[in-house]
Design a protein around this nucleic acid. Sequence first.
DNA 1: CTATGTGCAAATCTTTTGCAGGCTA
DNA 2: TAGCCTGCAAAAGATTTGCACATAG
Lengths: 146, 146
Amino acid sequence: MMAEAETQGVTASRARGIAWLGRAGLRPTRQRVALAVLLVGDGCNRHVTAEGLYADAQRRGDKVALATVYNTLRAFCDAGLMQEVTVDGTRSYFDTRTDQHPHFYWEDTSELTDAPVSELEISRLPAVPAGAEIARVDVVIRLRRR
Amino acid sequence: MMAEAETQGVTASRARGIAWLGRAGLRPTRQRVALAVLLVGDGCNRHVTAEGLYADAQRRGDKVALATVYNTLRAFCDAGLMQEVTVDGTRSYFDTRTDQHPHFYWEDTSELTDAPVSELEISRLPAVPAGAEIARVDVVIRLRRR
DNA sequence: CTATGTGCAAATCTTTTGCAGGCTA
DNA sequence: TAGCCTGCAAAAGATTTGCACATAG
């Protein structure tokens, strides 16, 4: 019974991962599915670094090379499944949520989390220089533990 | 006459650079003064990368090692004379303006410029999680040439 | 079968560090 | 003079690339 529920959970995650890949027209190879399951298997949004995702995969027993994790994350971004978020300078973060939204960055743990979009209200934005248009507005709220 | 004006300009920049260092209690060594002059010699704000500042120094004929540029920029930040701005991930930017203000980032040229603070108005900010306080809010407006 | 992916190691790029020698106060 | 700085080279990370092999459609 327990085992059955677990199996169902696993297949559901797999299905979700594969569907996610399919949405972008990416071939569901073993490694991609493994990483996709880690990223969107539970339906939640995730913020990962390449190293972090690689560690998760190892922990799960998935056989993936670190270079493949890098390449795959890059491929997911190119396909529009994820977006890269720059907050640290030494590390790249990848976000499964692709719309524009603010982030919390915990300076002590280097952890990145979503901040509710609905609670951010920018009532006035600097005038955009002539000949340019806004590609994106990044808002990062850096937090310190009190 | 021209030469005289130029000399005055040079001494004025030097004086400004040395005063800037003095404000932070940093010893005005040859290299630090050279970099300080490049950074604040004309009284304007500047956004530089280590490589970029190094190139400027070389162009001016200043003898500084690249490692020293890195170390010195780091020292200037620690002393509160500059702040690091993260926008690119592959490169660190250093800003001579140390207050909190939004930036324009030109995606095509990787150039970073100030956006007028007065024109940014955030009327509502996401609630800060319990046990945390805001260290800083970074706003980067990414621009695309039209 | 054939085009795409992947693994691995080596290369690349940015930034930091260690240590001997130089320069400021 | 004493201690802080700098130069240089080497190290350290993070990420990318090249190429032979594997695999999905």
